[in-house]
């Protein structure tokens, strides 16, 4: 008996393309668009997988034209701004979304790669535990966040957003890495438990509010730090060099896209033990 991952790998490596048949603002829940769900299925089988169109249960075939073979490389095109949960819970393979996509994209994923060639809605990669998400545009609120009732947000993996993100990115994050090349909204890494958030643009106000452990790194401007963060020193964190080198090696960031040697370190949130840290890039004097 083979595991799901092995079975997926054993399938042919051709591509599967799903094209949205029409444009509509009515929300679609399409958590069936996931490599794990496509394993061993042909076009007709995939067309019969369930989806929700508003409150109505439909099939993927009702909403998408489906062509191609294989489960490990899926491309989704058309008007997807209202399509939610693409790549939800995926464990392997690659999903490419051509254009803006709706909420909960890549939420709860544990492996594989999800690429969005546009903007992504709220809850991108919420509660994810592994794999990699790359968004070439902006993302909404709660990137890598925790769902209501969950005590933890993102638990592993990497999210790269090349544009801006909304508020509470990395909220209750437990592990993993979020990189935002643009600006972040308020409460970045709020109540963070551990993990790392890099922000190249402007770090929004009240970052790290209530954080227990973990690291927020600001490479650019910082709106303000809460008074419950205390400056400790300006130094050269060696672990940052490890991160930056690894990010360049894996191709996540280009040479010169994220740089910094000297950082101002503040610890906090002192209302929650003060074992977290915010590093703000400093210039050499």
């Amino acid at each position: 008996m083979t595991c799901i991952s092995c079975a997926g790998a054993a399938l042919d490596r051709g591509g599967m393309t799903l094209t949205r048949r029409e444009s509509s603002p009515i929300p679609v829940e399409a958590d069936s668009i996931c490599p794990d769900r496509f394993i061993g299925l042909n076009e007709a089988d995939i067309a019969r997988l369930p989806a929700f169109y508003g409150r109505r249960q439909v099939t993927l075939g009702d909403l998408f034209e489906i062509e191609g073979v294989g489960a490990t490389d899926i491309t989704v095109t058309g008007d997807l701004a209202a399509v939610k949960k693409i790549g939800h819970g995926m464990t392997m393979g690659r999903v490419t979304v051509e254009g803006p996509v709706g909420q909960h994209t890549g939420a709860r994923m544990t492996g594989g790669e999800l690429v969005v060639r546009g903007d992504a809605g709220d809850w991108l990669g919420a509660y994810m535990a592994g794999g990699r998400i790359i968004v070439e545009g902006n993302a909404g609120h709660f990137v890598g966040g925790a769902y209501s009732g969950d005590t933890k947000g993102m638990r592993g993996g990497t999210i790269l957003v090349k544009g801006d993100v909304g508020r509470e990115a990395g909220g209750r994050m437990r592990r993993g890495l979020i990189i935002v090349l643009g600006d972040t909204g308020e409460f970045t890494a709020a109540r963070m438990l551990a993990g790392t958030v890099f922000v190249r643009g402007r770090l929004g106000a009240r970052a790290g509010a209530g954080m227990k452990r973990g690291t927020v790194v600001a490479f650019g401007e910082v709106a303000e730090l809460l008074p419950t963060f205390r400056y400790t020193c300006t130094y050269r964190p060696v672990f940052m060099r490890c991160y930056l080198r690894r990010l360049r090696e894996t191709g996540l960031v280009a040479e010169g896209e994220l740089e910094g040697e000297l950082f101002r370190r503040s610890i906090g949130d002192l209302t929650n033990g003060g074992r977290g840290e915010v590093l703000v890039r400093a210039e050499r004097e």
Binding site: R175, R213, T215, P237, V238, F239, C242, Y243, R275, E277
Partner: peptide
């Protein structure tokens, strides 16, 4: 001490007088 998990490898950051020993 603090740790960072980078691609499955855990690095420890131990505070020392010139910064951190990784």
């Amino acid at each position: 001490q603090r740790s960072k998990l980078l691609d499955g490898r855990r690095l420890w950051r131990i505070p020392v007088m010139d910064g951190e020993f990784v």
